[in-house]
Structure formats: C-alpha cells, structure tokens
C-alpha cells in the first residue's frame, strides 16, 4: 500500500501538472491513523497530503455530484476509486449525473479495507498500522503485532465484495484483483430474517429503526440517491414527518430502500456511514435478491442499461402470489 500511495500522489501530481484536473478527491490523515477522512485537493502542492492505506475506505463517489456542480465547465475531477466506489461512479454515470469525460479515475485493485472498530475490539486499542496479506491481516498497535483472519477485521462491505477493482478507470494502482477478499454469501442475512415469523420480523425492524437519528447520512452518501428534490424532504405533500416515531421510521426506511430498488449497486456505503449501525444492507439486499429472482435482471450491481423498475416484460411473474394470503 505504501507503494500505491506513492503512485497515487504521482498520478495526482501529473494530473495537476497537465492542467486537466481541477480537484482531486481522495483521503487524508484523520485524527487517528486508522480513520482517514476525505480530502479535496485543489492544487499540486497539496497532493502530498493524500494518503492511501489499509484504512482509507469510506465511500467517495457521491462527492462527485457536488464537485461536478462546482467545477468549471470542461475541467475534470480526479478521484481515487476502490471497486465499491467504481460501482458508485458507474451508477452516477448511468444516471447521467456526471459525464465520463469529466472524470479522471485512478482505480485501486483493492485487497480489502480494515474496519477500525473491529480492529480495536481485537487489539484492545485502535491500531496504528495494518497489512492485508493474502490469507490474513497483520495489525500493528503501539506495543504489539497481531495476526487475525480477514473475516474478523475487514469492513462488512468487503466481506461480500465481488468487484475489488473498478471496471472503469484511467489509471490503475497495483494489480487488477478479480476476487473479493472473502466473499460470503450475499443473501445469508436476508434468508435468516425471511425464515422467522412476521411478528418477529416486525419487532426486529422496530428495534433497528428506533435507533435511527434521521441524520440522512445513508441517503447523502448513496450514489443511487441523486434526486434534486428528495421526496423525504418535501413539505407539500409531506411524505415523511419530522417525527421519529416508530411509524414514521417505517415510512422513512421503506422509502429510502424502495427508492433505490433495482438501482442499488450494493456498495455498502449507506450502512457504513450510519452512526448507529442500522443494518441497511439487510433492506437493500432483500430488494436485490427479489429483483434477481423475479425479473432475472443482473443483480446485484451492474448499473448497465437495464432498469429493473423502469421496464417490464409481458410475461413477468406476479411476485405477490405463491405466499400465504394470496393464491
């Protein structure tokens, strides 16, 4: 990774030197070494602030929207992208929020990103460095070195990753990596939840949604959520009240998830940014699973030309049949 960071800075510097990027979106050091934060580099001198390491993995793709609005007409925007951000960028491209010509994508073949919380659990303190190796992860704290399994310490989104290398890029750091670091079955969690009774499932969601602060971070980070006026903030009619009663939480979470049904690229960003750990991917994955089952659309991901909910076929099934309550 150290090598890749050097390469990244070089790529960014060259891009500024050629004068074809106006801003470069990447990571910089945060308060703690294990929590790098986004940075918007606007000149060649600041390139040295950029970092790329085992912890720099929060989603960046949605910032492109904002930067595209600010950018001069034909200036391009640089961005460093792991596989998941590659998916987010594809989503924004297919939704015509940004144009490909405008982007300078520096892809990373991603071995997986370390979750600082999980690492702290394992080490008893936040590690200062980490190395993702072929089979395991080595964590470095102020006093010791710890070797752990990938499943234990990589971010949740990495455990289900199918595309560690972005499918589109202008430059690539490191090698193309084809397989995700672990690849757990994407729908395990959904299937477990489907198996319990309706009442238990309802209680489960009440408990989850009750924590929600309605900060909208999940929506703001989502590359599939790009409407200019969001229905959740509309006043007339007011679809969502400001109240965080259980009832309104259902309206919120139903709408957030359903509005990206068929368009979610399962980048995992929403769940990752949630400050209170609402399992948002359990909602998204249910829809992904059903889109795949019912309409045989490529699912998950592939924001290709198909729009599962914007098209139909004459012999689509009636997905409401077959279960109790309706034959």
């Amino acid at each position: 990774m150290r090598q890749l960071q050097k390469q990244l800075r070089q790529e960014a510097e060259d891009a500024f030197a050629d004068g074809h990027v106006e801003v470069f979106i990447g990571y910089q050091e945060g308060f703690e070494r294990a929590r790098p934060v986004p940075v918007f580099v606007r000149d060649r001198e600041s390139v040295q602030e950029m970092v790329l390491n085992e912890f720099s993995g929060v989603s960046l793709s949605k910032y492109l929207l904002r930067e595209a609005e600010r950018a001069q007409e034909d200036a391009s925007i640089g961005i460093v992208a792991r596989g998941c951000d590659g998916l987010g960028i594809e989503r924004l491209l297919y939704d015509q929020c940004i144009s490909r010509e405008q982007l300078y994508i520096v892809g990373v073949g991603c071995p997986g990103v370390v979750d600082p919380e999980k690492a702290a659990q394992l080490c008893g303190e936040i590690p200062v460095a980490a190395e993702v190796e072929k089979q395991q992860v080595v964590l470095q704290t102020s006093s010791e070195e710890l070797t752990v399994a990938k499943e234990e310490v990589l971010r949740d989104k990495c455990l289900k990753c199918d595309d560690p290398t972005p499918r589109i890029y202008d430059a690539l750091l490191g090698e193309e990596i084809q397989r995700g670091p672990v690849r757990q079955n994407r729908f395990d969690g959904v299937e477990q939840l489907e198996a319990v009774s309706d009442d238990e499932r309802y209680e489960f969601w009440v408990r989850q949604f009750d924590r929600c602060l309605r900060c909208f971070a999940c929506r703001n980070v989502c590359p599939a959520c790009s409407c200019v006026t969001c229905s959740l903030e509309e006043e007339e009619p007011q679809w969502l009240k400001r109240s965080t009663s259980s009832s309104e939480q259902f309206m919120f979470h139903f709408t957030r998830a359903y509005h990206v049904a068929g368009r979610c690229v399962s980048c995992g960003a929403c769940e990752e940014v949630c400050p209170v750990g609402v399992p948002l991917m359990l909602l998204n994955e249910k829809l992904l699973k059903d889109v795949g089952e019912l309409f045989e659309e490529p699912s998950p991901h592939l924001p290709s030309e198909t729009e599962p909910l914007g098209e139909f076929s004459y012999d689509d099934p009636e997905g409401w049949r077959g279960e109790a309550g309706q034959s």
Binding site: L294, D316, A324, G325
Partner: peptide
C-alpha cells in the same frame, strides 16, 4: 405491467418488514 413489477417487489418488501401477507393484496 409497471404496477406488476413494482408491487411484486413491494408486496414482498412490506411483508419483509413484518406486515402479514393477508393484509395487502
């Protein structure tokens, strides 16, 4: 036909959130 797609998903999703399937047809 669009209704069919949307509600094929929505019916299952509403049940997934805990509403009994008999309540929504």
């Amino acid at each position: 036909y669009l209704t069919r797609r949307r509600f094929s998903l929505a019916k299952r999703f509403i049940q997934y959130m805990g509403i009994e399937p008999e309540r929504f047809r």
